[in-house]
């Protein structure tokens, strides 16, 4: 806890009576509450559309096919690894080993980019091969069009969060590399980590509801 108190003291904005965390961390948690509720709105809407009787909803396992699920499971794996490497960044920074923190940060960014790449590939495949009715009126949808629609809005909104997270992480990496973020600025990295883990956390839910159930 020593370093936490040090970073608290460095934050001159904090008052005598506080929750004992930095303003930045509190602000990020409040922001995450808001972000979580945005996803809650989309997911609750998904639940309603899907489980309304007569919605003609396919079982995702069958609709995406065997490989579709496997690929996304791999993607989940990559995002979880990227999340744990973000924890490593913070751990190494707290030990004062900035070189290794930078390496882990690169690994985190790389994980985010691979996730986005696989998702881009998946979207292309789905639009071109599975759901040609999206842009060609000559085709008929085999099942409820809302299956594709909710899929796009949920994974798309999450993918946007991953993109923002990658940009955020790149900024942190540049700060680490230029030396602007030193081993004492753990709260900066920790707050970025909170966002990145939240993106991972949401993906766990989206993966379960959209792909598996």
């Amino acid at each position: 806890m020593a370093s936490q108190n040090a970073s608290l003291a460095a934050d001159s904005m904090i008052g005598e009576e506080s929750l004992g965390v930095t303003n930045g961390k509190l602000g990020m948690w409040a922001f995450l509450v808001m972000d979580a509720m945005t996803f809650a709105g989309l997911l609750a809407g998904y639940a309603r559309l899907r489980w309304t009787p007569g919605s003609d909803w396919p079982l995702p396992i069958e609709a995406f096919g065997f490989t579709g699920i496997q690929l996304t499971a791999l993607n989940t794996f990559i995002l979880i690894c990227s999340s744990v490497s973000m924890v490593h960044v913070l751990a190494e920074q707290m030990r004062g080993n900035m070189e290794r923190a930078k390496k882990w940060m690169l690994f985190t960014i790389f994980g985010g980019l691979v996730f986005l790449g696989i998702q881009g590939f998946e979207w292309t495949h789905l639009i071109m091969d599975m759901w040609p009715y999206l842009f060609d009126e000559g085709y008929e949808a085999a099942y409820s069009v809302n299956f594709a629609a909710t899929f796009f809005i949920l994974t798309g909104f999450h993918g946007m969060h991953v993109s923002v997270g990658v940009i955020y992480n790149v900024i942190i990496y540049l700060g680490l590399r230029s030396g602007k973020i030193t081993k004492d600025d753990t709260s900066v990295v920790e707050i970025a980590g909170l966002y990145w883990h939240f993106v991972d956390l949401v993906w766990i839910l989206v993966f379960t509801f959209v792909y598996l159930i």
Partner: peptide
């Protein structure tokens, strides 16, 4: 908090 509120939302909205 968001877990609580999204529970309200999902339960209220479910068909």
């Amino acid at each position: 908090a968001p877990f609580l509120f999204s529970l309200f939302l999902t339960i209220g909205i479910f068909p």
